[in-house]
């Protein structure tokens, strides 16, 4: 097993004003690992994942991604972001651009690739998420599941070594959840390093190397999915899983 560290979060705390959202978070993710973070709403799980590409700024501790520590230096932030893909709960596709343009815009502006090459790469990943025929449509013309798959393709176009998923299926109609999860499962099968905030416990069971349970801005416990789901040690984990599985 490859034990190189992809993300190392050490002693990270964060406050919104006087309210502490993260308290002394320690978490390392090795290359090729797939970490699922779960926990009740308000537990800080989204905030944590958003700190990993500095969409949120942490006030204490350190976060190192692929050997680069995240500080206020824009150069470092850009280097990390161009190597870390992110998929959002609400897709955040650009509504004024076509599906294809959504997938090429960062390649052209960040990677400075010529249009033809960017288009080729975009089409490759649109095929990978099974919607090449929608390339010239606008996001508003697609279903939620299709939009989320475009968002995944858009992130993959930057050839990231790590993918972050922030509740990628929470905004979807139930019948569309599967197509998105299937895409994520196939990514996992390819060995992508993934950190995923989700309540999809079957997904966690199937692909997660480890499941992290958070509550009140802290990591309560982390373990392999079958262990954590069948025999959680902490009372809070038990209560949360109990609610989720019923």
């Amino acid at each position: 097993m490859n034990t190189q560290t992809a993300i190392k979060v050490a002693g990270v705390s964060k406050w919104y004003g006087a309210f502490q959202v993260l308290t002394g978070i320690d978490l390392s993710v090795h290359k090729g690992e797939r970490i699922v973070i779960c926990g009740p709403s308000g537990s800080g799980k989204s905030t944590l994942i958003r700190c990993m590409n500095r969409l949120e700024v942490h006030q204490e501790g350190s976060i190192v991604v692929n050997g680069i520590e995240l500080t206020n230096q824009l150069k470092r932030i850009d280097r990390v972001r161009s190597d870390v893909g992110m998929v959002f709960q609400h897709f955040n596709l650009f509504p004024h651009l076509t599906v294809l343009e959504n997938c090429t815009v960062a390649q052209r502006w960040v990677r400075k690739l010529p249009k033809r090459q960017a288009t080729e790469i975009a089409m490759k990943y649109l095929e990978r998420v099974h919607i090449p025929e929608k390339a010239n449509k606008y996001p508003g013309q697609l279903s939620g599941g299709q939009q989320q798959r475009v968002a995944i393709a858009r992130a993959l176009c930057m050839n990231p070594s790590i993918m972050l998923f922030d509740e990628p299926t929470s905004a979807l109609d139930p019948e569309m959840v599967k197509e998105v999860l299937d895409t994520m499962i196939s990514l996992a099968a390819d060995g992508m390093t993934m950190v995923c905030v989700t309540h999809e416990m079957n997904f966690a069971r199937e692909v997660a190397s480890e499941v992290v349970f958070m509550d009140g801005g802290q990591i309560i416990e982390r373990d392999k999915p079958d262990v954590l789901f069948s025999a959680p040690t902490h009372e809070r984990t038990k209560r949360f899983l109990g609610k989720l599985l019923h």
């Binding site: 969409l55 161009s82 992110m86 959002f88 609400h90 596709l93 960062a106 960040v110």
Partner: peptide
């Protein structure tokens, strides 16, 4: 705000985000 975050997560600079997104 999601639009800016979506673009920022792809590594786009602030002025690029402003201009294109």
């Amino acid at each position: 705000r999601g639009q800016q975050e979506g673009a920022a997560a792809l590594g786009m600079h602030r002025w690029q985000i402003f201009l294109v997104i």
